[in-house]
Design a binder for these strands. Structure first.
Lengths: 153, 153
DNA sequence: TCCTAGATGCGAGAGATTACCATCTGGAAC
DNA sequence: GTTCCAGATGGTAATCTCTCGCATCTAGGA
């Protein structure tokens, strides 16, 4: 029935992540609202690294009163709190990822699809001290740009 | 964000890069216009990874008729042609880099400054075949996010 | 049940780019 | 040197992606 198959994270994982998410919020004294839970769940279910607008569009049928501004605000604050990650795709709208484990992103420069990968070589990468003198490293963001199978001619 | 001070690339390097740039354009049959040369030169001189708007502002005194739209178009096409690189900084305006050699970017999450670094460990990084099955890798973009010396409290 | 800091909804507005189109021009052909 | 035209530019409107201000609402502690 669905023309474009949505890649979904396995339901048990989603359920566990949502439980952990709610627990973390409560532990940190962050208010748990239906909107926050819904946004987090939608992102956890979706493997396509959706934009804020896409998350909103997906939730709209179920939460008609949900405001796009609220989705932007929620994703921004979750990123700041380290509960989701903003993915750098350079152009167009910002995209988000509920996967906080160590991984890299394959970005297709033709269709814009983003896929998680875990390359042990890259995951193991350390930083030489000299390269970052005077700089406090907080995050290493690795983007692998190219063409996905569908877009290779 | 505080304004980014302009750090300049050594003049001999800039001159050589500009010559190579023009030669490459001619070799590829890409039309060489005063605007293209000026935009490329401004970017080559500037180590601060300026935005399209910053490039335009810098050229305006010398080329009062230069349109911002033209600067955006030129930078976009140079990026597409592989003659400059668009730097991923995730938020705000897109930033550009004339340095096409292998290097990574230190991005300060407080002031937004971007600095080139060359970490041998990262430069040497290879990709496991399994991680990118069906994906043609064209570029490895590594962003090191944290706080620069000035913004560390 | 009450209270309030913080969250939400909505509409206006800002910033960065992109589209459109009339005009101009680099450089190949003569 | 002159002609010619595909492609580049300038100016402006439109778009896309958020962000802000503010009135209202609500989660969750007292």
């Amino acid at each position: 029935m669905t023309p474009v198959p949505v890649s979904r994270r396995p339901a048990p994982d989603v359920a566990r992540w949502c439980d952990e998410f709610e627990a973390t919020c409560r532990a940190r004294g962050v208010r748990v609202t239906p909107q926050r839970l819904a946004v987090y769940r939608a992102l956890a279910e979706d493997l396509s690294h959706p934009t804020a607008e896409a998350v909103w569009a997906r939730l709209r049928p179920r939460m008609p009163s949900l405001s796009p501004a609220t989705v932007y605000r929620i994703l921004e604050s979750l990123d700041r709190e380290g509960l989701v990650r903003r993915v750098s795709v350079t152009d167009g709208a910002g995209r988000f990822d509920a996967n906080r484990g160590p991984h890299q992103h394959l970005v297709c420069r033709v269709c814009g699809r983003v896929r998680d990968v875990r390359d042990p070589t890259l995951t193991r990468v350390g930083l030489g001290r000299d390269a970052v003198r005077g700089f406090t490293v907080e995050e290493l963001d690795i983007r692998i740009v190219g063409r996905c199978g569908r877009c290779r001619k």
